[in-house]
Write a protein that binds this DNA or RNA. Structure first.
Lengths: 206, 206
DNA sequence: TCCCGTCCTGAATCCAAATTCAACAAGATT
DNA sequence: AATCTTGTTGAATTTGGATTCAGGACGGGA
């Protein structure tokens, strides 16, 4: 098998190039993205794409899976070295919202969300992302409760689900360019709920 | 101008037929719906559609506008004759969620939401729907406060925005067929928040 | 060096959808 | 009854993307 100096095989390197190209193309053109648009994004011809992925649908599914994975990983990484549950909660809320309406990662997720109502595969992917994010919040909430910092107003599963739901919805609003809802305003709205649900002040500067 | 027995002109009757056909077609096929698919839904040929709407985009925009209008009107109608703010709040929460994952009205809104991140016109339409729904909740919250039934934990605008956001997000979850989130479960999750925000018990049976 | 497998291009072909339009049906108007 | 208007079809044409494939570049191994 042909390998690069660094030791990776060329095939899987090229594939991950294609995944990124497909992510960009789908973020820009939506779920109905054309083969040629992916090819252009990759700097190749459509034949080359077909060589690696005979079925465009497979590529798009892999691309979305990879995109969701990256989104989730980045959020986890943002928590590195933070121990205080209140701080973890605030950071997590902020990292779930798009920075602005140009955020490509979230644009991809929005396209996916619209498609999931009609496409079972995308629905499964997004449902699993939702549940993983819920678990992430839930563990933060439980940790805060165990340490006595949070007094939860409902079961942690319900609160976690509402937090993820708020994030999701405000992500769409930001991407749609709502005139008075930006990253800061929506983070504050979600924090309003988090304060009610945890009975913790969750200071702005943490 | 040619008229029917009932007095409406044929042109606008046909147009509203087309709007409904376009709504069904877009709910089924997504934002990338084809002219032929709309025509089939309408029981006509593509030429006939083009006769009324030379540009498919215009038809789709009108169809979505009409769909959003209907959605909003139905929610208002569900409040007819209900005076108690707590009841109004519960009814409004329930009427904002799809009944199940086959709800065509919400399927259309989901398709629209995914597209809004890339299409300014759709973004404007959805933003305006969001804001109208916020206003609807806000008036209920203010009425409840005026009557002494609600003690709001935050300003009514913030609470109203969070309520609409929760609705939106759970609508997507239900349409994606989340295994444990159905109409009843999500309504209860939103009610959990509403109880915290209003300090009102909002009984299940109202 | 020569060969071989991998990866990719560009042209040819295929196909589905959009678009155009002459013709016609059916009411409405005179 | 004759004519006009509106709405529609179905066939012809155009368009644009998908698919196929022969050929070529390039690097690695003999």
């Amino acid at each position: 098998m042909p390998r690069t100096k660094a030791g990776g095989d060329r095939r899987s390197e090229r594939r991950s190039d294609l995944l990124e190209a497909a992510q960009r193309a789908m973020a820009e053109h939506g779920a109905g993205v054309r083969l040629n648009q992916v090819a252009e994004e990759a700097g190749l011809t459509s034949g080359a794409i077909l060589y690696h992925y005979p079925d465009l649908q497979d590529l798009l599914i892999d691309a979305n899976r990879a995109g969701m994975e990256r989104f989730y990983d980045e959020r986890m990484k943002a928590l590195d070295g933070v121990d205080d549950p209140a701080e973890r909660l605030v950071i997590t809320i902020r990292s779930g919202l798009p920075v602005d309406d140009d955020d490509e990662e979230v644009r991809l997720l929005c396209a996916l969300g619209g498609e999931a109502a009609r496409n079972t595969v995308y629905a499964v992917l997004l449902t699993s992302l939702f549940d993983r994010q819920v678990a992430m919040y839930q563990s933060i909430l439980e940790m805060g409760r165990a340490q006595g910092a949070f007094t939860l107003a409902n079961d942690s599963l319900s609160i976690a689900r509402n937090l993820v739901a708020l994030e999701d919805a405000y992500g769409y609003r930001i991407m749609a360019g709502h005139p008075s809802l930006d990253h800061g305003a929506t983070a504050e709205l979600i924090l309003d709920y988090a304060r009610l649900a945890t009975t913790h002040p969750l200071a702005k500067e943490s």
